[in-house]
Structures are given as structure tokens and as C-alpha cells.
Computed example of a mutant assay.
Amino acid sequence: MHSFKSTLLSAFLLLLCSGTHVHALDTSSHCGDYDSVTAGQYSLLLDQWGKSDASSGSNCAAITSLNGTTIAWKNPWKWAGGNKIKSYTNMQLNKGMNKGLKTISSIPTTWKWSHSTSGNVVANVAFDIFTSTTPGGDNHNEIMIWLANFSAGPICSSYNAYGIAVAVASSISLAGYTWDLHVGWNGSNNVYSFLPSNGVIITKFSGDLNVFIKYLRGRGSISSSEYLKTLQAGTEATSGTATLTASAYSVVVN
């Protein structure tokens, strides 16, 4: 009989001969404008598309752990000058994309996070979802689900006399919370933003993201014939100094 050790050795040699390699988790800090780090079914993306609007600043991020579909990361940033969004550092799901909306039964997710700030901060913490009319096609609709609003504001087509965005629907009950829906246009596609009613900050979210898509389908805003193209979670940073610590994040498309 083979010993337990010899069995393990045989299995290891078979793994080497098969050409399969196990990659170590990259937990180093990345600060490039469009750096990307893949881990399991996710990619950590440093999308600093509005960096040129800043007079100074920096944005870095690092994955801190991965256990199955649960991932954690840290994103310290600081921006000064300008009034536009500088970066959206996010965790992107790479599995389950390009499915037809009508074929998706649920998108269960959990996200536990904290946000340490210094001085006046303008930012949000939000999911960002894009749909397309064809699999892998151009962005057609954008759905944002804000868990926190730090003196920022959604893209909106209507504002009151004080410059505050006006919601098209208020106190919508979805995923265990109430939301206000704002609708606007970003120059390329429609944007539907769900913000927690009364400025509530949700640091421990657990729910089904598909209920937001179904709500928009029900009101005729998004066609059921569209496809899920992108699903991301992170912080849009405009100005100030802060660190987003995502201690546990998991999402699956069923």
C-alpha cells in the first residue's frame, strides 16, 4: 500500500505535469491610474478616469483577503481641487456576466465596510451596474445603488431651487431598506441611482441586487430583453482624504 505521504507526492507531481499552477494572492498595494488585480471571480480595478481634474492627490488599493467568494480590500485616497469625480476604485465581478436580465433569478450580495475620513470629504460608496442591449455590447443603462452619500449627489435631471437633486420616486422598499430613485443622463447612457432615504448610511448590506433591476423593469425604465454587462462595488471619490475598508464582500449571479 502507498503511504499517505507518497500519495500526496504523486498528486503534487501530477499537478506539475498537468501544467496547472496555483497563483498566490496579490496583496500588494497598487496605485496606477488603471491598475487591475484579479483574484478568484473578481478584479480590483483602480479607475482614476477623472484624475486630471485634481490639483493634487493619490489613490491606491490592495486586496487583503479572499475566502471562496468572499473578498476584502482597502482603498486609501486623497484628492484636492476640482469638483468632478476623480476615481472609482471598485471590486468587479467577472463571473456570470452577459446573462439576459429575464434569466437571472437572484444576485445575492453581502458587503461590510467602514470609511475613515479626514476633513471634508465628497464621495459615495456604491454598487455600479451596467446593462446592454446585446451580450457584451455598449453600456445602455447604468444602475447605481448608493450605500452612503458623503456630501456628493447623484446624476439627476431635476434639481430644486437649492440645487438639491429631486427624486422621481421616494421611500421605495427594496432589500430591507427604503430608497429614493433619481434619474439622469451622463452623456452616454441613462443613470438610475437609488439613494438610502433620509441620508441613512448602510455599512452592513445583505440583500438581492436583482430586486433593483426588477423594480426598474417593472416601471418600464429598463427592458427585460437587456443583458447584465458589469457589476462593481466601490467608492467614487471627488475630494478630501479617506480610506474605504471593505472587510467582507461577496456577490453571485444566479
Rank of each mutant, 00 (worst) to 15 (best):
M1P: 13
M1G: 14
L8A: 14
T20K: 10
V22R: 07
S29P: 02
C31D: 08
G32A: 08
D33Y: 13
D35M: 01
A39I: 07
A39W: 08
G40A: 08
L44M: 06
L45R: 13
Q48L: 03
G50F: 06
S52G: 10
A54T: 06
G57R: 13
G57N: 05
C60A: 12
T69W: 00
T70F: 00
I71P: 09
I71Q: 05
I71A: 04
N83P: 03
I85S: 08
T89L: 00
K95R: 14
G96W: 14
G100P: 13
T103E: 13
P108W: 08
S116V: 10
T117A: 11
G119D: 01
V122C: 06
I129N: 07
S132D: 11
T134L: 14
D138W: 06
H140I: 05
I143T: 11
A148Y: 11
N149K: 09
N149M: 14
V166L: 07
V166S: 11
S171F: 13
I172E: 06
L174E: 01
Y177G: 02
T178M: 07
W185L: 01
S188F: 04
S188T: 06
V191E: 04
Y192G: 01
Y192V: 01
Y192R: 03
N198L: 11
V200M: 08
V200F: 03
K204D: 15
G207C: 00
G207D: 02
L216I: 12
S221I: 02
I222S: 12
S224W: 04
S225A: 14
S225I: 06
K229R: 15
T230W: 12
Q232N: 14
G234E: 05
S239H: 07
T243R: 05
T245H: 05
V253G: 05
